[in-house]
Design a protein around this nucleic acid. Structure first.
Lengths: 239, 239
DNA sequence: GATAACCAAGTTGCCTGACAAGTAGGAAAT
DNA sequence: ATTTCCTACTTGTCAGGCAACTTGGTTATC
């Protein structure tokens, strides 16, 4: 977790990045206590041998993440951990098997709960939107396509029905990330053939539970669907 | 969600902040497509009437959030959404009732799943650590204290047993945030008296399920505990 | 004419130096 | 002793400039 990768492409970290990382360490490690004043930009620039604008950029990052607060004329101070209002989910290397497993676990937790809430709170319009995507998926299967996009749209429609923006944004992010990985990881889509019917059956089960406002049923259906999806994902990784 | 607050204290946003927000809007709204090149720093500085360092700071934020990638000599480009590797959870105003409800929902989803996984994966050392915190909580009750810190430590010990850093970091953040809110929201701790025994019974139930490696039982126990906690939280909000 | 080497314009990364705006603590005046 | 004011310090912002790198066209070579 301490590793700070730049995503897919391993670009050389900028000076501001390295300074930001080291300052961040000072804070999370506790060497700089909450409320304590950071060294002045002048001092930091001297200790790290970089210019003040670079230091400003680094501190700007920490400020953006809510770790420090700056007051013009006074200085920069370590924020109270309880008051930090932003959380960063940093998926560094997607090649790491364990990291994928951890992410999928998180995705399952969020998506299963979201489905459960959707079953309770869905409006008629929500239900109709979900059914539309379900039908689109069916059409894609008939056309012999993989239906990855329709699959994603189906889940999005469900998530939308939770009317909880946190669930929406988060599973949006995780979904996109995982599916993007699948798309690039699998070399032949042929392996998917024959599985689509099973996927669709699981989708239907989820839909039915949401339709009859069965919270527990929706959660169970979503969980089995996700568990199966995780197994299918494992297939791509273990040929 | 579009609103971009600076946390608790409403400080005047810096120029870099406002530029960053507007550029972010250009991207998420889709006016700037993935892969597309952003205007040069020079052009941006002219359109917004700010200096180039300020623009650099703004772009640095977007880069930090994984929304754009810059290539020296080439320019700044909108990142592929599927490749964005960082997710920001931005809890703007904690005074908003609906926002709290949404956050608590997310916390419940994560923590219940984490407890379930902990039951399966816990080591003997994990179990011992959890029990230690359970005992500490008991001692706090005997001493007549609220035991908020011990409560937090108990949950942390469980989360630690999941050995999933994403669960750990996330519930760490949410826990701290919610509990911090409780701490500041309640005016009299007396209202808590008499409830601690009930809380401790729920804790015991969670512990027992984890001890016998009962995944479903652990989830159920955690869910009822969280549901009750949410109700107790509602008490603070609706006197 | 096709290919390769090269060059020049453009862009980001980083620096120095400077001034404005705001803060905090002590000095001076009451 | 209290209040006012001032000065040093710190962050916010700007201007200008050079180095490193990319890109596309131009030129030289075969």
């Amino acid at each position: 977790m301490a590793t700070h990768s730049r995503g897919i492409i391993d670009r050389a970290p900028s000076l501001a990045d390295t300074v930001a990382v080291r300052l961040r360490e000072e804070i999370v490690s506790g060497r700089l206590r909450p409320g304590e004043k950071l060294p002045t930009e002048q001092q930091i620039s001297e200790t790290y041998g970089v210019s003040r604008p670079t230091v400003r950029e680094a501190i700007g990052r920490l400020k953006h993440d809510g770790l420090v607060i700056t007051r013009q004329g006074a200085g920069a101070f370590v924020a109270d951990p309880g008051a930090v209002s932003v959380f960063r989910l940093d998926i560094a290397d997607f090649s790491n098997r364990e990291e994928i497993r951890n992410i999928v676990e998180l995705l399952m937790a969020v998506e299963a709960s979201a489905t459960e809430h959707a079953a309770v709170r869905r409006t008629e319009a929500d239900l109709k939107a979900i059914q539309t995507q379900l039908d689109a998926m069916q059409q894609a299967i008939i056309r012999g396509e993989s239906g990855v996009d329709e699959d994603l749209a189906f889940h999005r429609a469900i998530i939308e029905a939770t009317s909880n923006p946190f669930f929406r944004d988060m599973s949006d992010f995780l979904d996109r990330r995982v599916r993007n990985f699948i798309r690039t990881a699998r070399t032949n889509t042929a392996r998917l053939a024959g599985l689509t019917d099973a996927v669709q059956a699981e989708h239907q089960a989820i839909f039915n539970a949401i339709e009859r406002r069965d919270a527990g049923g929706a959660r169970n259906a979503a969980e089995t669907h996700l568990k199966n999806a995780a197994q299918r994902l494992a297939l791509y990784l273990n040929p």
